[in-house]
Amino acid sequence: MVKFKTAASAYKTLNGLICVYKPPCVPVKQVLHIVKTNLCRDLNALPDRPLEQRVEIIGSTNEPMKVKVVPNYADDPRVCGPRYIIEDFKCTWASHLGLFTSGVLLIGVNEGTKLAYKIKSGQPTRAYKVHGQLGKATDTYFWNGKTVERATFKHVTREKIDKVVANMQAAHQKTMFEQSGLQMDLQSTYELASKGLIRPADNKLPVLYGIKCVYFDSPNFTLEIQSVNEYDKYLWTLVHDLGVQLKTAAYCTGVQCIRQAKFDVNLALLRKHWTLEHITDNMNTCQEILDENEQLIKPESALLTA
């Protein structure tokens, strides 16, 4: 772990991308505020530069005067305030997570905000674990909504869920090609798809690349979804639609982002590790990943849009 001797040397290293684990029910803006607050706290706890000196001339004007250098107390943090404050940091997210969504969140710090914008414009794929429960539907499709329907679910099996999600994936992929202006039976479409994932031309259009059931213990189940341009309410709707196609009702109980591009939960810093030393170590690791995967910050050469 990196150890810093002075606050100034530590501050100079805080330019890059970090990966943190966003807790549920904590807004992204609050996550940024906590990160900046912790960085200020840790920087102000490090040894700082010496106090500025001032020249003081004393004595009577009609006699030889004495000149001496004394500490400038106006430069003392106890007078002028902490050396580092929240306004000294710029932070932004590479891709937003909803209030109730937990998981991997990429944050650009200072000069790293440019990297965050480049990753965001590149429409990185994200993987989620979406948890749901059968037998009830709510008006928001989420657990905190008002119950609008109850239904039996004894007839639902793992095999039926697998069949329905396979059909949902095929339907979404077909729609993706159609909305991109591509025809499924053309050689050009095949060649384009063989080069990598096809991103939608509209960066606000949600596209699913994969959906499968990874856990089922009636009435609870978990879907693993890979997508771009998605948002929390869109994922809730998928759970509701799954319940309808299974001839029952279902609602979402939780959403966890487990991967964004090449950054996964194993790299994400927990809230207790949002400290200067852990953040700088994490920033170095993220930079190594970016160096190995240059397409993440060069969206103009990686995007395959119609």
Rank of each mutant, 00 (worst) to 15 (best):
V104H: 03
P219Y: 02
L208V: 15
N293Y: 13
I198C: 09
C25Q: 10
E292Y: 09
E277R: 02
V28P: 03
Y141D: 07
I297P: 02
N293W: 01
K233L: 06
R83M: 14
L205V: 01
I86C: 04
D88L: 01
F216V: 05
L303I: 12
F4Q: 04
G132P: 10
L290I: 15
V228Y: 00
K195M: 15
K3G: 07
K262Q: 14
D88S: 08
D185I: 11
Q133S: 13
A10V: 02
Q183E: 15
K118L: 15
W93R: 07
S218E: 00
M168D: 09
V69N: 04
T140W: 00
V70Q: 09
K12S: 10
E191N: 15
S180P: 10
C40G: 05
M1A: 14
L304H: 15
Y141N: 13
D217Q: 06
R150D: 13
F263L: 03
Q123F: 05
L186G: 09
L303G: 12
E292G: 05
T275G: 11
V255F: 00
M65Q: 15
T101A: 12
R78H: 13
D139I: 07
L270F: 10
K12F: 09
E288T: 14
G132H: 05
S227C: 12
N282V: 00
E159G: 00
V228S: 05
Y11I: 00
S102W: 03
Y11R: 08
K298I: 09
V69C: 06
I85Q: 11
T222S: 06
V148P: 06
R54F: 01
P299N: 14
G81P: 09
V265C: 05
Y190F: 15
I297V: 12
T285A: 12
L303A: 12
K262T: 13
A170R: 14
D202M: 00
K5W: 06
Q187N: 14
D76S: 08
E149L: 11
S121G: 10
L208R: 08
K163H: 13
Q53Y: 03
N282Y: 02
D75V: 09
M168W: 11
F4C: 03
T248L: 06
L235P: 01
Q169D: 13
K247A: 13
